[in-house]
Amino acid sequence: MSTASKGRKARLLQVRVPVSGRQALISALGVWIAFFGIWILASGLGWVNPILVPPPGKVFATIVRLFAEQGFGADVLISIGRVLIAFALASLVAVPLGVAMGAFPAINAVFAPFVSAWRYLPAPSFIPILLMWFGTGETPKLALLFLGVIFFLVTLIADHTREIRKELIETALTLGANRRVTVFQVMLPAVLPNILVAMRQMLAVVWTYLVIAEIVASTTGIGAMMMRARRFLKTDEILAGIIVIGALGMACDMAFALLHRRLFPYLEDKR
């Protein structure tokens, strides 16, 4: 193996040949260093207007200042709260409905045409009517986040449930499983890892709608802080908001990845 690879010319780009851990780390760090390097150069050498593009150091100092002196922590907590509540409500509806649609064609026949029609309506188009119905409190924001993901989440979960291999279900039936056992003890555990994957994907979308909701109609939260900053040309605060949202999104994603590994250890063995 090693002699063969030595004999061959080392090439940078090889179709589907995996890279070493070291190369992966260097590549990942390299692109970030390049990104910040260009940013520092551009603001340091005056290529860009420092009011529109503040240097990275200033942005990070702003993040610290926002949390330490300006109560930004409260905004962040409000935003996280909105995401979690809306996403929990959406999941509470989507998981049972999606599994039921995937398991029972009769239920699918009722809901599939309805759900797929709603999927094509952009959730932000409901903002004006949601504001008229629910005023300016938390309700219209939660409703927007809920509407933004519920239909996609239901569809994804229903699809995953339909993809459960026929043999698993038929094995259960020939072992004497009734309908309840088949759904709750075979189909549900079989689809659970994929439900978590669907939730992970859709949680990213909730963050998108959160910022839309907070920019359009809110005085609290990360998005509202960014809109306030715009009024006073505080680009450093806007960029700080973007970075914080990115970090929170990544943290959510990593939490879900960790949860997936913890809940489904049997999938690890496949590698």
Partner: peptide
């Protein structure tokens, strides 16, 4: 009438309950 435990079946395709 329908499937039942007295007629257990083994399939060609993999059918273990992974969990």
């Amino acid at each position: 009438e329908g499937p039942g435990r007295e007629r257990g079946m083994v399939f060609q395709a993999y059918s273990s309950f992974d969990w």
